[in-house]
Design a protein around this nucleic acid. Structure first.
Lengths: 203, 203
DNA sequence: GTCTATAGTTAGATAGAC
DNA sequence: GTCTATCTAACTATAGAC
């Protein structure tokens, strides 16, 4: 990994814990192991580092979703088949994948925390956060449950309400067990319980 | 309102938007309308202002919960009677009270945002945030649903799972519609929909 | 692409006049 | 309890040697 990439990585780590304003250019340079002045050969300002992180995330999201085998956003038939055919087990696998990706993936979890911290300071940041961790998740699952209801896997009257009932507990537990790596087992157990309850209610 | 109280108020407003580190003592003094040096006659440090806010909140929580008529944490019989006797309408009223308190009450909403921003920087802050906005809410409602299930108002197998299914969408929508006062109607409509779905599922 | 040196600004906090 | 003046330290960023 070259110096520019290491700057981005260390900056994200610091931003996700202390925030943008709470992190100085010297903090980042120290973490990388160079002088703060040297950092300006790679980025023309602190703000440019922040913007680079946001751009980098969209690239990683694409790559990760392929690695994790998550179906494409617009390929609902395939998604419904993938998770629908195996019903309860499938839906549990889906929830655990989403959950663990945002809880444990180094870049994704730090990026999420950074957005959480910075969301009120900058409207644009809030929109990225809302889009990625709320709207995208719910609209994806709304389509998924509509498809699964049509196939008779689940019985619900409103796919959007189902999606919120499926995703909100994941979102809640993500926030609840954030920053507590020692309680990962408890977190996964709580998640499993909610998914089972969801399955029971809509079966 | 005296100067000391105004400092606390303006500091909270700034902390809730820009964070502790993103707010300078001069920012606070300017908002109050005094010089930054004058502020040190009221507080011996910036940190002391922050700590005062946290202490002030527990006082306000107590006061507000009485004003809003929310039943005491340990008086579950009364709570179950209050909300249980009127079932669907009652549970909707409960959710709207919680929702609007944390979304619109000046002090409460700013305080919540401040904790969201500062939760990763300070372990103690995280514990306050987790305690107030996650654990307390869920444990309160776990007892409430246990009581309501015993009375035959709802039919569920696991009161904790019910509580998470009830509170997680509230928590999710609180984050989703945060900072969007123009979409309050949409937010309340979404909340109502989730509560109706909850009621339908556990009836 | 790293360093030293430094400019220019702002930070948190104190001293002392009124 | 407000102000002006000031201190020290830290901040973002630039210039220029190697």
């Amino acid at each position: 990994m070259n110096t520019k990439e290491r700057i981005v990585e260390e900056a994200l780590t610091l931003f996700s814990e202390y925030g943008y304003q709470g992190t100085s250019v010297k903090n980042i340079a120290d973490a990388v192991g160079i002088k703060d002045s040297s950092l300006y050969k790679h980025f023309k300002s602190k703000k440019e580092i922040f913007d680079t992180i946001v751009k980098e995330m969209s690239v990683r999201m694409e790559r990760m979703s392929k690695e994790y085998g998550l179906p494409d956003e617009h390929d609902m038939e395939k998604a419904a088949e993938l998770y629908g055919s195996i019903s309860e087990e499938g839906i549990l696998a889906l929830s655990e994948k989403i959950f663990l990706f945002y809880l444990k993936d180094e870049f994704a979890s730090k990026f999420r925390r950074m957005l959480v911290i910075e969301q009120y300071r900058d409207r644009e940041v809030f929109e990225v956060y809302r889009g990625l961790f709320m709207d995208a998740a719910v609209s994806y699952q709304t389509e998924l449950f509509a498809e699964m209801t049509a196939r008779g896997v689940f019985h619900g009257k409103d796919p959007k309400a189902m999606a919120v009932n499926f995703y909100a507990p994941i979102f809640f537990l993500l926030n609840r067990y954030d920053q507590q790596p020692d309680k990962e087992k408890e977190a996964l157990e709580a998640l499993r319980k909610q998914v089972m309850e969801f399955s029971r209610l809509y079966k």
